[in-house]
């Protein structure tokens, strides 16, 4: 066996090959296999084995892509998941807007109440406002998931294109998520590297941690 792994082959094929070439590759490989019968040196014999293995690998991969319905995954499942997540963001935004509208009304009424009740109602309204932070945080988390889905969608498209299963690579359908994609070139790399939030609770610095980092500059 040569040092070339199947993963290595598929990766290089996926990266380099335009959509229709793998069928041609199989054809060329089979023609070569047909043409090198006769006196085979050890080197030629190894090449023969490698080419046969390559042709088998391409055929198997195409069959597997057809079996798992990769085109369906790209065209329907991922697009649908992206739409569902966009609907979640939209629904929470609408609901949060209504909650905050109601808070404003309660705050107005609280202003007309006796002092003690007014203070209690105002505190409760403030707590609701604080809790509505969730809409921003969940929105950003869902945007990160959407971005991952779009990445998978592109990769599946490239795989389908490279192995000729069903047409060309497609661009993602969903809107561009909140990201640093269109930053000026000079600072893009640095700035993009810093856009990773929100972190999951176990991996996040707390406000106290951040205060300590800031204090370390003093």
């Amino acid at each position: 066996m040569s040092g070339l792994s199947k993963q290595g082959r598929s990766a290089s094929l996926a990266a380099e090959a335009p959509a229709p070439t793998t069928g041609e590759v199989v054809e060329i490989v089979e023609q070569m296999i047909g043409s090198i019968r006769g006196d085979l040196s050890p080197g030629a014999l190894q090449l023969y084995g490698e080419l046969e293995e390559l042709a088998r690998f391409i055929r198997n991969t195409r069959e597997e892509l057809a079996t798992i319905g990769a085109d369906e995954l790209r065209d329907h499942d991922i697009a649908s998941a992206t739409d569902e997540l966009a609907a979640v963001v939209g629904a929470t935004e609408d609901a949060t807007g209504k909650i905050l509208d109601s808070c404003d009304v309660i705050a107005e009424i609280a202003a007309e109440m006796p002092a003690e009740q007014s203070a209690r109602a105002t505190d409760a309204v403030t707590t609701i406002y604080e809790a509505c932070n969730f809409q921003d945080i969940t929105g950003q988390r869902i945007t990160k998931v959407v971005r991952t889905l779009q990445h998978i969608e592109i990769k599946v498209g490239q795989l389908l294109g490279a192995f000729g299963a069903s047409g060309a690579v497609v661009a993602p359908k969903a809107d561009k998520p909140k990201a640093a994609a269109s930053k000026p070139a000079a600072s893009a790399a640095t700035d993009a590297d810093l856009l990773n939030g929100p972190q999951l609770p176990g991996n996040a610095n707390s406000q106290a941690d951040i205060d300590a980092i800031l204090a370390s500059f003093d």
């Binding site: 604080e130 932070n133 939030g197 406000q207 980092i213």
Partner: peptide, 28 residues
Amino acid sequence: VTAESKTENVIAAKQAGVNNYIVKPFNA
């Protein structure tokens, strides 16, 4: 005021001249 809570973010903001840094979610 941001959901970016990584140490390198806090340092980058400080080096850029931020006066303070609040991580979301936050309270009054």
